[in-house]
C-alpha cells in the first residue's frame, strides 16, 4: 500500500501545481500629466508642466505641447506672460516639427507677449507632422515674486503644408507661483 501512496504522491504533486488562477490587472490611468486627464478636447495645445513653484532669480522651462494634432507643418504660438514677474530667457525647438532636420524658429518678445514661429523642414516624402509632442521649449527667468499665468494668445495659429489653419479645440494654461 505504501508503494501506491508513493505513486499517488508523485502524480498528485504533478497535477496539483497546475491548478491556479492568478491576480488580475487592476489599474487607474490617473497620471496628472496624461493629456487625457487635462480636460482638453483634441486637437489641443497646452503647457507642460502646467504649474510651477519657483524662487526669484531661478530659471525654469515650459514646453509648448500639442495634443493629437492632425497633419501640420507650421505654427504661430503666441504666449502671454506676466512681464513684471517673468522674463523670457530663450526659446528652443522641440521634437514635433522635426522631420529630418530641426524646424526653423523665429521669435518676437515684446511687453509680455512672446510670438514663436515654427516651420517644419519638409523632405521629398514628408511635409507634415502630427500627434502629441512638444513643439518648443521656453526658458523663463523669475525676476520678482507673484502668481501669474501662461496662456496662449488669440493670434495662435497652426497650419498644414498648404497653409490651411487647423482648428484648435482647446487651449491649456500654466500657473507660475514665484516666491
Amino acid at each position: 500500500m505504501s508503494i501506491y501512496r508513493n505513486r499517488i504522491g508523485i502524480i498528485l504533486v504533478a497535477l496539483a501545481v497546475c491548478w491556479f488562477a492568478c491576480e488580475e490587472a487592476d489599474y487607474q490611468l490617473d497620471n496628472l500629466s496624461d493629456p487625457l486627464n487635462l480636460g482638453l478636447t483634441p486637437p489641443a495645445i497646452f503647457f507642460h508642466p502646467s504649474s510651477f513653484n519657483i524662487d526669484v532669480n531661478d530659471t525654469f522651462s515650459v514646453k509648448l505641447y500639442s495634443y493629437d494634432l492632425p497633419d501640420v507643418a507650421g505654427a504661430h504660438l503666441q504666449v502671454l506672460y506676466d512681464r513684471g514677474s517673468l522674463q523670457v530667457d530663450s526659446v528652443i525647438t522641440d521634437t514635433l516639427f522635426r522631420i529630418e532636420a530641426d524646424p526653423l524658429l523665429f521669435m518676437d518678445d515684446a511687453e509680455g507677449v512672446l510670438d514663436v514661429f515654427l516651420f517644419a523642414m519638409p523632405t521629398q516624402t514628408v511635409e507634415n507632422v502630427s500627434g502629441t509632442d512638444a513643439m518648443a521649449r521656453i526658458f523663463f527667468n523669475v525676476i520678482s515674486p507673484g502668481i501669474s499665468e501662461l496662456v496662449y494668445g488669440d493670434s495662435t495659429r497652426i497650419v498644414n503644408a498648404q497653409n490651411i489653419p487647423v482648428q484648435i479645440e482647446s487651449y491649456g494654461k500654466a500657473v507660475v507661483d514665484a516666491q
Binding site: N31, S33, H48, G131
Partner: peptide
Amino acid sequence: YQNLTDPKELLELRPDIIRYA
C-alpha cells in the same frame, strides 16, 4: 505610467497598459 511625467510617453503607454491588462 505612474512614474513618468512626459505627456507623449504617457499617452503611448496607455494602450500597452490596457492591452496587457
